[in-house]
Each structure stands twice: as structure tokens, then as C-alpha cells.
Amino acid sequence: MVLQLLLNGLIYGSIIALGGIGLTLIYGILNFGHFAHGDLMTLGAYLAYLFTVQLALPLPFSFVIAGLLTAATANLLDKILYKKLEGRDSVTIMISAVGAALIIRNLILMSWGPQLKFLERGIEMPLVFFDGLLRITRTQIMILILSVIFVTAVHLFLSKTKLGKAMRAMSDNTALAKITGINTERVIFWTWFMSGILTSSAGIFLAMDTHLIPEMGWNLLLPMFAAVILGGIGNPYGAIVGGLAIGISQEISTMFIAASYKPAVAFAIMILMLLVKPSGLMGKKV
């Protein structure tokens, strides 16, 4: 039981973590909470549905194209909204992100309708371990492996490349990054791009593991924010740890409280964190 919940939490947590990395970098670099992040995730998942199911293209191909299109959407939002609102107070920018979220979600609702959709047809038989104590599907194994690959790639990018280091530097201290001559416009562009790819991937993983609905990403926004705050705003490694912690806590909580209150767990952890250590476990910005 615990083992199974841990596994479920790990999968769910990886999805939150992938989305959270972009959310926290945007937070650190542009200094606002991107409330449309969850809906970008939904967009990625539905685009994958469009290519894989409706156009019958191979999944890996759809995965990449959906990622690129979601990234392009993220960059578009920055170009036509957030960049233009630069210098206005952060609440204005955040409410415009809320508006963008509603627009994206309702575009999806208009295009694909409110019904549940599935990326894969048929029921997949899980592999059973420990006399039925642990069940895992091949899809779930793939999600876990790909998540590890993605996180490793992000780590290598952030720690080894000039652009990655510049991203972390900007997230640390934007004013100093400018004085140092870092090309901040370029960093911002690639931050949106990378966030788009990651959040789209997270959405597709979620769709593969469960199903698609237009609210899927919005429902993950709170857990993602909780992960970002838990790990310290602007800290991508914090978001990964935070995401896993939130994911696992939500699943384990079902041993003690009704499963329908699972979404409240992320909220409770977040509030607790705000009360105890608002700068997060690994961060410094408040």
C-alpha cells in the first residue's frame, strides 16, 4: 500500500517537478507568478492528442512538436503581453497571466470539448511485483525514465552551459546580471522556451498516465506553486525536490484523509511553509 502510494506520488511528483522548473525560473527571472503555466501544460497535452490520436502520427514525433508549439505559445505570451506590461506592478502582470490562462483553457474547450480523452486506447496490463503490493504499467516506467532524463538534461544545461548559468544568475539577481553584460533578452527568450517544452512534457506525461480534460493543467497549478515555494522561488533544484515532496505527500495523505481532499494537501504544505520558512527549503527570495 505504502509502496504503491510512494510510486504514484513519485510519478505525480515528477510531473509537478517538470512543470515547476519553468515556473520557478520565470518567477526568479521575471519576478512574477505565471498563472497561465498550468494551462500551457494542458495545451501541450492536447496538442499531443491532436497529433497522436487525431492525425495518427507517432507519439515521439507528437511529443516534440507539441513541446515546440507550447514553447512558441509561451514566447508569444511573453512578447504580446508580459513584456509589454514590464514596469507595471506585478499584480497587473499576474492578472494578465490569469486572463491568458482562461483564454488558453477555453480555446481548448472550444476545440476539443469537455469530455475525457485518452492518449492511448485500451487498458494496459500493469506489471505486478511483491505479490500485488506494487503495480506499475510500462507507460509509468517510461514516464519515470523520461523524467529522470529530462531533469538530468536540465541540470547539465543549467550547470554546464553559458546560457544555463546566465539563467541561474538572472534568477539570483537580475540587476547584477544586467551590469555584468548578460544578454537578458536572450536569457528571457530561452527561459520561456525551455519552460514551454518542460511543461508541455509534463502535461503529456499526465495525459499518458491518466487522461485529458481541459482543467488538467489548472488543477496542477496550485501543486506547482506549492512546489516552487517549498523549494525556494527561483531555484530550479528546489522546484524538483519540492515537486517530488508535494506529489508523494498528496498520495500518502490518502491513507489518512479522504482522497477527494488530496488537492488540499499541497495547499496545506504551502501554508505551513509560508508560516515557518517563507524563503523555502533551499531559497532566499521572499
Binding site: S90, L222, A264, F267, L274, P278
Partner: peptide, 25 residues
Amino acid sequence: GIPTLRLREDYLGISTIGIAEIIRL
């Protein structure tokens, strides 16, 4: 307000989404 009003404005925003969701639940 207790956990959020000492912090930057975003925290209140995120928390109000959370509380609205919990009330709905």
C-alpha cells in the same frame, strides 16, 4: 491573511486560489 500578508503580493494570490478550491471541495 495570517501566513501571507507579511510576504510579497503573489503569495496571497496563490493562497486565495487554494482557499477557493478548498471551499469548493
